[in-house]
Every structure is written in C-alpha cells, then in structure tokens.
Amino acid sequence: MTATSVRVPLSAERRAAKPRAWGAILPTVILVIGAIYCLIPVIWVFIASTKSRGELFTTFSFAPGTGLFSNLADLFSYGGGQFGMWAANSVLYAGVGGVISTLVSAAAGYALAKFDFRGRDLIFYSILAGVLIPGITLAVPQYLLLSQFGLAGGPLSVLLPSIISPFGIYLSRVFAASAIPQEILEAGRIDGASEWRIFRLIVLPIMLPGMVTVFLLQFVGIWNNFLLPFVMLSNQGDYPLTVGLYTLLAKGSGAPALYSLAIIGAAVSIIPLICLVLFLQRFWRLDLISGGLKG
C-alpha cells in the first residue's frame, strides 16, 4: 500500500520563500489577524472553563478563574461519571460511523467515476440531491421508519443513518475521477485480477488522501450532530456528548441550568476535534472538491 501512496503533505512548501520582508509583512499581519479572529471564541471557552459558577458572570470575559479543577472534578463525577460515557459514545459513533461511511463513499465514488453502467447518472444525481434536504426534516421520518424495524432507540439508529453521506460520495467520485488513471485499471484487468482485488490493492491506496478528507468531514459532522441522536436515542447511556451537554443546559421550568458544567464539558469536547484536525491536516486533500469542476 505504501508503493502507490500519493500522500502530498500540504505543508510542504512548493516554492522557496525569498527573503522579501517588506512584501510579506502586510499579508502576514492580515493572516494573523484572521487567525486571532477565529481563535478568540475558542480561547474564551477554555478561559471560561476555569471559572467557578460565581465568577462566570462577574469577572471580565477573558480573565481566568479559579475553578478549573473543581469544574473538572464536577464534570467527571456528574451523574456517576456519565460524561466519560458520553465521550466514549461520541468516539464510537464518529469513529466507526466515519470509517464505514468513508469506505462506502469510496466504493460508490469509484464505481460512479470509473465505470459506465446503466443508471449511473440517476444514482449520482439522486444521491447528490440529498445535500438539499435539511436534517431537521429527515430526523422524525427516519425515527418513525427505524421504529418499524425495531431499531429506534439504540446506538445503531444513530450509526446507520450517519453512514450515508451525499457529500462524501460526491467527493470520492471527483477524487477517483481525477486521481485514478484508467491504464492502471486496464493493466490490472489484463493481468487477470478480479475487480475486488483491483479495488483493494490499486484503487484504495490511490484514494487514501481523498478518503482521509472524507473521514475527517464525516467524523466532525457526526461528532457535532445533535438532532439525530437526540431524536433517536432513548437511553441515557447511549448519548453522545452533544445530547449529554444539552441535557445539562435544558431543564424543565424552575431547575437551574448547569452552566459551568456545560462550559467545561464543551471545552473538553472540542479538544479531541482540534487534535484530530491538527493531526489529519497533513494528509488530507480538500482540493479534490474543486477538482471535479475544473474539467
């Protein structure tokens, strides 16, 4: 799999930077301002998570508080350690769902890009139209249908609908079309390799950079999805982080919202995503998205 891998780290600089300081200062300054603009609210979450309940609404927004450790202790002891369980569920849904979704999308994208078969355009455009349907509309019908099969309520009811990703299939098709040379496939067929073997040994390794992108987008999408798991799940032990944090904030009339718990929970729940972005951004290739329209 390493032989045909085409990992091109994005960070590799293509042109040697010439030391023309004057021409670089303004662009650098603008970029750093943009970066700070994007980071300010994130920095705020981490600062707010150090504040005790009393400090949250009384001290200056960006002044650190004194409650970090008691907040953390409260968070992980809430409801007998439910937060850890929610986090584990999020990892499970986003991880397993993301991997399966990526593989399903890659196989479909490859078929749609590299084979000419009856119904190809119908399949492609029908799936693509799925981008137009808001999740709010789908959640309840999906629930009612899954109930017919006795699936609603459990973890599978969140996992299965998360696998289908019109955008992921679209990306995979575009990437397969531009990255896989027809000759390699033909050569494989002449050698007598089965289609499955060609897909496994030739196609998947070539598509890996694109698949990393699809995986990351799906992982983030599933991780941050609230409505689907909220509607589907009927057992607190199956909740992902988004639904769990929601139950901390949404109480019946008269019950106080657990603000500081929700904020520290939010801060903790962003950390894995930031790590994942930092780690995967060396491998992923978002240019495949626009590649398809270049033709």
Partner: peptide
Amino acid sequence: TDAGGGDESSAKLLT
C-alpha cells in the same frame, strides 16, 4: 433517562 427538559422533550415523547 434524561430526555431533555422544556419544549423539545415533549416532541420526543410524542414521536
């Protein structure tokens, strides 16, 4: 199970 309070939970229960 904490199915959320306030308004959304009633939709969940109805569904």
